[in-house]
Design a protein around this nucleic acid. Sequence first.
DNA 1: CCATTATTTCGATAAATCTAGAAATATAGA
DNA 2: TCTATATTTCTAGATTTATCGAAATAATGG
Lengths: 99, 99
Amino acid sequence: MDVVAAAQGFAAMGSESRLEVLQTLVRAGDNGLPVGDIQLRTGIPGSTLAHHLKFLSSADLIVQDRQGRTIINQANYRHLQALAAFILEECCTDQEMGA
Amino acid sequence: MDVVAAAQGFAAMGSESRLEVLQTLVRAGDNGLPVGDIQLRTGIPGSTLAHHLKFLSSADLIVQDRQGRTIINQANYRHLQALAAFILEECCTDQEMGA
DNA sequence: CCATTATTTCGATAAATCTAGAAATATAGA
DNA sequence: TCTATATTTCTAGATTTATCGAAATAATGG
């Protein structure tokens, strides 16, 4: 995980609306959720939601998979875990003792 | 950690420049670093850096402490850890089994 | 092919953010 | 107090983002 990808990931989580969408998907588990269900649970209008889902998907935080005419959205747990790990990954590597 | 604070925290990490500044402080450990040192290590101009540090500090990601005429910046490890934990905290709580 | 459902793209406006030079502020020491 | 050092505030332009209605696209069933 390079700093560019990480920044993009955090930026995608850095909006209240989008973080709520992401949390909804994280809670939903491996089955994922269709766009319409997310719309119902969050109250976000379709066009706005599509915008946010695109943002999340560009950042690799979710995966979209078409099934017939609905689109299933799933949290990308691997990537999310990698981002969580990234935050403190290099903790204290430059720290000097004493002082 | 509520969703508002979390979104603010992730937004603060969601810029490449700012994430680099934060990483620099995470690496620096508990001793922290003066603004000038961060400036040297990152190459970011003073006024821009001050802006980013304020952003990070508003989001509670770093703590600033004046010592004489220099300002020591330290990563707020507690808060960073809480943010890392937040990401997958509620994983799968809504998941239904089978099918 | 037509109607229906699901989702996205278009378009436009408002708001927030990024950047950095110049000026201002704060502190310490001579 | 005068000077040097450290950092911030001011200011402003360029870029990005957020929002959402209306129109367009995609897929299904009759």
